[in-house]
Design a protein around this nucleic acid. Sequence first.
DNA 1: GCATAATTTGGAACACGTTCCACTACGTTT
DNA 2: AAACGTAGTGGAACGTGTTCCAAATTATGC
Lengths: 203, 203
Amino acid sequence: MTIANPSTSDDLGSAAQRERRKRILDATYDLAKSGGFDAVQMRAVAERADVALGTLYRYFPSKIHLLVSALGRQFDEASARLGEREIPGDTQAERVLYVLKRMARGMQGDPKLTEALTRAFMFADSSVTNEIHVVGMAMTSIVTHAMHGGVPDEGALTDEDVAIARVIGDVWLSALVAWVTGRSTAAETAAHMETAVGLILRD
Amino acid sequence: MTIANPSTSDDLGSAAQRERRKRILDATYDLAKSGGFDAVQMRAVAERADVALGTLYRYFPSKIHLLVSALGRQFDEASARLGEREIPGDTQAERVLYVLKRMARGMQGDPKLTEALTRAFMFADSSVTNEIHVVGMAMTSIVTHAMHGGVPDEGALTDEDVAIARVIGDVWLSALVAWVTGRSTAAETAAHMETAVGLILRD
DNA sequence: GCATAATTTGGAACACGTTCCACTACGTTT
DNA sequence: AAACGTAGTGGAACGTGTTCCAAATTATGC
């Protein structure tokens, strides 16, 4: 018996499988967008994606895997969009804040979606390492890209740059959780990020 | 009809109620310590605390409230223990790292417990704001105490000190989540915290 | 085109968080 | 001491994530 795992194996399977996978992620996205974490119910996802429950679980072994995969797709897209353009701002801090604010705006426009994806990310255990890694890389790449002003000069990426980007990503994540769970407002979150970036990126 | 809520009301109720509350938190602690988040099952907590399931829910309206309250008790104790002593180290960075490492050691000694409490903390929504606040304050107070060298000179606590402490707390939390969920090792976590504190607390 | 393997389906079943209810025990007021 | 209200008990029941299975469907090798 071949053990196929369409969600993590490198080869993406047949066209029909790729199509199913996309339908599932789209359904997840829609449900998350309209009702948040709680609305992403496995039976509902399966029904909307027009697959059986068992099939859904074959593609994504848990609700968390499913949501984190959807988050990964989001971040990849955001990262690609931002990668195309120059980032305005004269200092690293300004550019990073520009990008973070931009992302924050996007997320605030879809609070339910953001809540669902963030919750899943925070709840993920080690079985979701691969999917998490995708998100972490995208986050780091977004921040380093902003630090370097949007010029794709990858040679200039030092270890310290990456370390800094990871620290900023950490603060961003904590702030996001606080916002998503209603413990802080969007304005407080923005102010907090300014403080943090100001501290970390003193030029 | 008086609406009693023994878990959040300021007055802690009768001695019997305080006793029940303690038994419940102790049971939570024991179960979390031996089996982590999944082992803290409401029926199991109720049974071990010798309380009916309905009573458990009267004291703590959800599993998350329960675990976050237990976490709050932990942090309060840690904060009190640390508050008594002078913190060794010549610079703010050294002292903060000393304290963080100390806490990390404690947490690594009880990985299951740490996993349960951290998971709950990250999953909490706005209905848990009060309990979360207790934890946040304890964390901030631990870090600022370390920054000031352990001398209880509260007058010196500036807004910036608090902001810095919060940023460090954010990084610490993200690192903790990564460690708890098996995405990074204890050593990586420690190194990451050194980087972050070094960046944030350049004297 | 057939035989065989792999995948998908539909749905039952289970686990655990949560809710609800009827009943009992207890402490307070009078 | 009697009546009343509040808290606690025991247990059934419900919702949703997850698992499992037999039957149907689809893909693959010959």
